[in-house]
């Protein structure tokens, strides 16, 4: 049997190792947040919801969680609008600038987050527009790093879009706007939704870029967790982590329903 199976046994074993590496830290965070003791021991001392309750009264982690949620929401709205428009251009225009723009729009992902954060900080300090240490400044950084994900997912769904459907609507008397909102938008909507979720998650978990742009009054969750982790293991932080894990798991499941993941992988 083993020999006819398409996957060698060694590969199955190493795959198991890879899954353990990927999932163990997540499991440990969940256990730490639900553990009744201060420290997670082996074997665990018992289950308790006190750290979860502690998270809801925490003066640090609850505001940080809510701040991250708000920041990610605003970031996502701006990124989705700008990114979707750009993706439509990238798939429909025949201009030669297209390839250059495609490269430009992917660059923020390639550029080290620390370098981008520093560059924005220097720029904000030079221009004196009041962006340094401000919410709009932080927002600008997050839009930069999330837009590439929106552009990639929406482009992937637009590549398969049959333009003649829109042309048919136009020839039947629809205005360009009507043709777009009534015909194109509903068809590419799953791609846009997936891009939206990607953008939200990337913004919510963004650390390196945020390092230079956050201030003590504007602390997103990753920064708050990092600051507390430098001194001690705060089980309340793990409880906050549980909520973040739920958020990511749900959004990944939703994404997998919205877009054909296989298709997305093939385009990478």
């Amino acid at each position: 049997m083993g020999d006819t199976s398409p996957i060698p046994l060694t590969f199955r074993l190493v795959s198991g190792v890879a899954l353990v590496i990927l999932l163990t830290p997540v499991l440990i965070v969940v256990l730490s947040g639900l553990n009744s003791g201060e420290y997670l021991t082996f074997p665990p001392q018992g289950l308790s919801l006190k750290w979860v309750a502690g998270f809801f009264t925490s003066p640090i982690f609850l505001p940080a969680f809510l701040f991250s949620f708000g920041l990610a929401t605003v970031t996502t709205i701006i990124s989705t609008i700008l990114g979707t428009m750009a993706a439509i251009f990238l798939t429909r225009s025949r201009s030669r600038a297209r390839e250059v723009l495609r490269g430009l729009f992917i660059l923020p992902v390639v550029l080290p987050g620390v370098v981008l954060g520093l560059a924005l900080y220097v720029f904000f300090a030079w221009t004196k527009l009041g962006l340094a240490g401000s919410f709009p400044g932080l927002l600008i950084g997050h839009v930069l790093v999330t837009m590439p994900f929106v552009i990639a997912t929406v482009t992937a769904s637009l590549v398969d879009f049959d333009l003649s459907v829109e042309d048919a609507a136009r020839s039947l008397g629809a205005t360009p706007l009507q043709a777009f909102t009534k015909v194109t938008l509903p068809i590419i909507q799953p791609g846009i939704s997936a891009g939206t979720i990607f953008a939200f998650i990337v913004s919510f978990g963004q650390f390196e870029l945020t390092l230079f742009l956050a201030t003590p009054d504007m602390q997103p969750l990753p920064i708050a967790m990092y600051t507390s982790l430098r001194y001690a293991f705060e089980p309340t932080a793990a409880a906050a982590g549980i909520f973040a894990i739920c958020l990511v798991t749900i959004s990944t499941l939703v994404t997998s329903r919205l877009v054909n993941l296989k298709k997305l992988l093939r385009r990478r």
């Binding site: 830290p25 997540v26 440990i28 965070v29 730490s32 990607f198 998650i201 990337v202 919510f204 978990g205 650390f207 969750l221 990753p222 967790m225 990092y226 982790l229 293991f233 932080a237 793990a238 982590g241 973040a244 894990i245 990511v248 959004s251 990944t252």
Partner: peptide
């Protein structure tokens, strides 16, 4: 997609 800092915890 899960926040790196959470996994590092």
């Amino acid at each position: 997609q899960l926040d790196m800092v959470i996994r590092l915890y």
